[in-house]
Design a protein around this nucleic acid. Structure first.
Lengths: 115, 115
DNA sequence: TTATCATATGAAAAAATGTTCATATGTAGA
DNA sequence: TCTACATATGAACATTTTTTCATATGATAA
């Protein structure tokens, strides 16, 4: 096995591990979830919404960011289906839309608490 | 409450949520974990090492990346204490060093499998 | 010692990401 | 209708991250 000039030391082990790997598509989807949570503003938004729904400008206050910056990040979280929104007149309320993500965050909260 | 020109709609809710938020330092540490797993090369490395330890050039083959690129990513994972390494002659073997991260990945694997 | 191999590292180049700013949209009320 | 407000969005700019390339290090064998 030799890909792009990189030599392989132990072909057998590599093949076995290769078979154990999830398909690339799934790896990408996992990366997307982690990426969504890997920005302080976005993670803080999700943590805040864990508590209850909030409107955009309240989230901006909580994150100490401009409305616009928060709106951009909310769009990313919305696209990823991590949050959902509902309109009440002029105000747009955001809330959590993915229980799996809640568990992920809970687990990482535990991790950080332990160390 | 009015921070940097952003008006707050519902002060009470904001205060309650603010109190429910983990300290910023912990949020940063959570972000660091998610960031570590939010690159396809790094996540693939960790997934591969979940199976068994591997040397750098075998990881490079698995990830279809140059030795150097992989080495850089391994340093990041090492700094984060997500992986550890041991030398055997010229060869450096890397393996998983953080069980919490294993659980996190397992959970995200489940998530991706479900949807 | 010298040559070779496996890996590491610094710095530059390339790519991806986040924020700001100006402007647009949708809603409510005058 | 016009105005004000809450939010959204595109594009420019700034920052961060990743990859590449050249070179360095540490280990083995000749």
């Amino acid at each position: 096995m030799d890909i792009c000039g990189v030599r392989c030391i132990d072909e057998k082990k590599v093949r076995k591990t290769q078979q154990s790997l999830p398909p690339d598509e799934n790896i990408c989807r996992m990366v997307d979830i982690f990426k969504a949570l890997s920005d302080p503003t976005r993670l803080k938004i999700v943590l805040a919404l864990l508590n209850r729904e909030h409107c955009v400008c309240d989230i901006a206050v909580l994150c100490n960011q401009s409305d616009s910056a928060v709106s951009h990040q909310l769009r990313i979280l919305r696209t990823m289906k991590i949050v959902k929104n509902r309109r009440e007149g002029k105000i747009m309320y955001y809330s959590i839309n993915d229980d799996h993500v809640v568990s992920l965050i809970q687990m990482s909260l535990d991790h950080v608490a332990h160390c």
